[in-house]
């Protein structure tokens, strides 16, 4: 079977120790949470760290709890625990739905929220064995200089493929990053960047410790739709997350849509301010779908036809809202 390359393993009990290990082995170290992304990638020799730091022993990274006006979710919370958490289901049905739609049952038990948010970007030319990539001639993201998705492209466009990211973006979540220098909280909106090689602003000496999601007021509706060929296991070919804050009179206070599995950064649909004050009716939703459609252009980084993925955007926007308002 495909083997893992050799590495030294560390299992710190405290976050500070983990951070110290990151510092000490800078450039030669990877963190392992659930392992569902890192282990296949290491088997593919996409990463060959000399040191692997396990996060399972660090208790402060676990748990889901209310804190002020926020629901705080520890980074090591498993996707399955997230999916079956009653508070999550009650407050953020779209998040529970996205979690349930990830991979298969075993991978949901293993994978973590922090791991999903930090999921390496994916591309049909990248997530392959070393032999395969050698036969291809390698690519921009790893070991090579050409992009096979965008001819002549100089910037990697491997796709953000995490289901939870678009949902949490619509919910206005933020993440806490810890480093030896302290902790910083940044809005998830600023966490992702459009660079397929590394699509987050996390520094090599930082660990994502928790996610803070503002507890909604009455009138928030949320929805999530995922396109994939198989109804299990597959990574998304398209993710559509929506959230809308309605006032007591049903008029929109704000609406957010994030479309992902396109390029390196989940795409937050822009220029939706004009929808403020409108009713969330069929006409509005159709316009929202068109707005999303105009702004999104899937690429061949995923092996499902791009034209179809694009055409599904307005349909999925409509279905996400329909689900949201159920």
């Amino acid at each position: 079977m495909l083997t893992l390359p050799p590495f030294e393993y560390h299992a710190p009990m405290e976050l500070a120790d983990a951070l110290a290990l990151l510092q000490k082995h800078a450039g030669k170290v990877k963190l392992i949470a659930g392992g569902t992304d890192l282990v296949p990638n290491m088997k593919h020799r996409l990463f060959m760290p000399e040191h692997v730091v396990g996060l399972k022993q660090i208790s402060e990274l676990n748990g889901v709890r209310g804190e002020g006006g926020f629901l705080v979710i520890g980074a090591m919370t498993s996707i399955a625990d997230l999916a079956r958490n009653p508070r999550v289901a009650l407050l953020f049905p779209s998040l529970a739905r996205a979690a349930t739609a990830i991979a298969g049952p075993q991978l949901r038990e293993m994978g973590t929220l922090g791991g999903n948010l930090c999921l390496d970007t994916r591309c049909v030319y990248y997530n392959q064995t070393h032999f395969w990539r050698k036969a291809l001639g390698y690519c921009l993201k790893k070991d090579g200089t050409v992009c096979h998705v965008v001819k002549g492209g100089q910037k990697c466009v491997a796709a953000a493929s995490n289901d939870t990211a678009p949902v949490l973006l619509t919910l206005g979540a933020s993440v806490e990053l810890a480093s030896p220098n302290g902790r910083r909280a940044i809005p998830l909106e600023e966490f992702y960047v459009a660079d397929g090689v590394a699509n987050t602003v996390i520094e090599p000496n930082e660990i994502l410790t928790k996610v803070r999601v503002p507890i909604p007021r009455a009138g928030l509706v949320t929805g999530y739709q995922k396109l994939r060929i198989r109804a299990a296991i597959d990574y998304p070919s398209l993710c559509v997350a929506v959230a809308a804050q309605q006032q007591a009179d049903g008029k929109l206070e704000w609406v957010r849509m994030v479309i992902s599995a396109l390029g390196s950064k989940p795409h937050t649909v822009k220029r939706l301010e004009g929808f403020q004050g409108r009713a969330l009716d069929a006409a509005t939703i159709a316009e929202l779908g068109q707005a999303a459609h105009r702004q999104c252009h899937p690429l061949t980084n995923i092996n499902v036809e791009t034209g179809w993925r694009r055409e599904m955007i307005p349909v999925f926007v409509r279905r996400a809202f329909a689900e949201a308002m159920k």
């Binding site: 393993y9 392992g35 088997k43 396990g54 049952p105 075993q106 991978l107 038990e109």
Partner: peptide, 25 residues
């Protein structure tokens, strides 16, 4: 690499993939 489930074992009662789990963990 975690695509087929043939290696599923229970870890603390939960189904997980042994091919993606480090023995040491």
């Amino acid at each position: 690499k975690g695509d087929c489930g043939a290696c599923t074992v229970l870890i603390d009662g939960k189904p997980m993939l042994a091919c993606l789990s480090l023995a040491i963990e």
